[in-house]
Design a binder for these strands. Structure first.
Lengths: 217, 217
DNA sequence: CTCTAAATTAGACTAAATATAAATAAAAGC
DNA sequence: GCTTTTATTTATATTTAGTCTAATTTAGAG
């Protein structure tokens, strides 16, 4: 048992794993104790070695998904998580940030930020890259942003938007939620007004961007 | 001037560049003569060093796009191109394949395929990973696939699908194309029938998957 | 307690979409 | 050359979805 920080690298893409390992090798106080390319192998690895740090891209359908942070914390609460993801959906990112992740980078980050983040997380500190910090600030101080409020939709409106985006028509949604079709129309009108959109199609695009629905199943 | 194959690595993500360089280092007969993280620096690099091979991910909005293969070939016709991309839109992939690319991998490929592809491309051969070969075969022998024809839509139908997906209603499209709104309805009905879809919303999702429209502008 | 926002609903009305049918032109097959 | 299919186009009558306006109920903020 060395006194180095024990790190697990989890990414479905071999190039990213190799790149990350290469960057980590330059760090004296870090030891890579394992790699994983899917949820199953990562979780058994975590339960086995209880690493101090897991570096992961959760945004890889079929390999990893956004629930991974909670699953890691359940198995090993002492493990700190550094996300290096290609995700660009604000709501999904907010969700992951609230889910016990310590540090968060995007794959567009430059080398300096990656190294800083790895060092900070290995010390138990938190680190967020510029892009993620901008998102956090935008959410904390919505008045500063020109785009304003991240999601000004009420829970019910989100629910209805999700169903609309899935291709259901008002009548079907009404039957599902046991309310009148007129209620759906009103909600939808309010959603369009709030988001300053003009066509139902733009709602789909919005829902996709916000991570309310997924492309391909 | 050595007798090694001179390779340029182009990827906006530093981790992928590092990973790729690491993999290439293991290849005796390859020499990395430059790296680029955006179109401008790549093109000036290509024009300067005229590499035998460029390895690139064209699917990085703001850094590289699908036109890059043609641009490289214009500057340096002798350069072979190996794409290692995260793109999953069939139509876009077909378009790039027709655009003078020699080899094509996805970032989900395993290490073996990546090494094989690099060696093959360095020798001037072509290489396609399993996933891409499946796509090519699917297009060449549409009857074999259960999903059948990649895009069985006529040009006119594609045009109308694109406009519908942009949020325009039949009347607006009719005015734009100088035809009757009824024509639009008929086309749309045919599109839904051909794609075995049931709601207009699914058309939007289809158009997004096919790369007919783009998320965010 | 009052005021606002969220959630709900209805009736009258308008616009969009479907079903059905069909004409024309071009491409493919024999 | 003739037939068949596909693409493109259109129309009428009918059905359905969606909008506008208006209103009620509930819950939370101040």
């Amino acid at each position: 048992m060395s006194d180095k920080v024990r790190v697990v690298v989890a990414d479905a893409q071999v190039l990213c794993r190799v790149g990350l390992c290469q960057v980590l090798k330059a760090e004296e106080q870090i030891e890579i104790v394992g790699e994983a390319n899917n949820t199953e192998s990562l979780l058994s690895l975590v339960s086995e070695v209880k690493p101090q740090v897991v570096i992961i891209d959760y945004n890889q359908p079929g390999y990893f998904d956004a629930r991974i942070a909670g699953q890691i914390k359940d198995i090993s609460p002492i493990t700190d998580i550094l996300v290096i993801s290609s995700d660009d959906r604000k709501e999904r990112i907010y969700q992951v940030l609230e889910d016990g992740v310590n540090s968060f980078l995007t794959k567009q980050c430059d080398e300096g930020e990656i190294i800083d983040a790895i060092r900070a997380t290995a010390k138990g500190d938190k680190f967020y890259c510029h892009k993620i910090l901008d998102l956090i600030i935008e959410r904390s101080f919505p008045s500063k942003s020109e785009n304003c409020a991240a999601t000004p939709l009420s829970p019910r409106e989100k629910e209805i938007l999700t169903l609309v985006a899935k291709g259901k028509i008002a009548k079907e949604i009404a039957a599902e939620l046991h309310i009148s079709p007129h209620t759906i129309y009103t909600h939808r009108k309010n959603i369009l007004r709030k988001l300053k959109l003009t066509s139902p199609t733009e709602m789909i695009v919005y829902a996709l961007e916000q991570g309310l629905i997924e492309l391909e199943s």
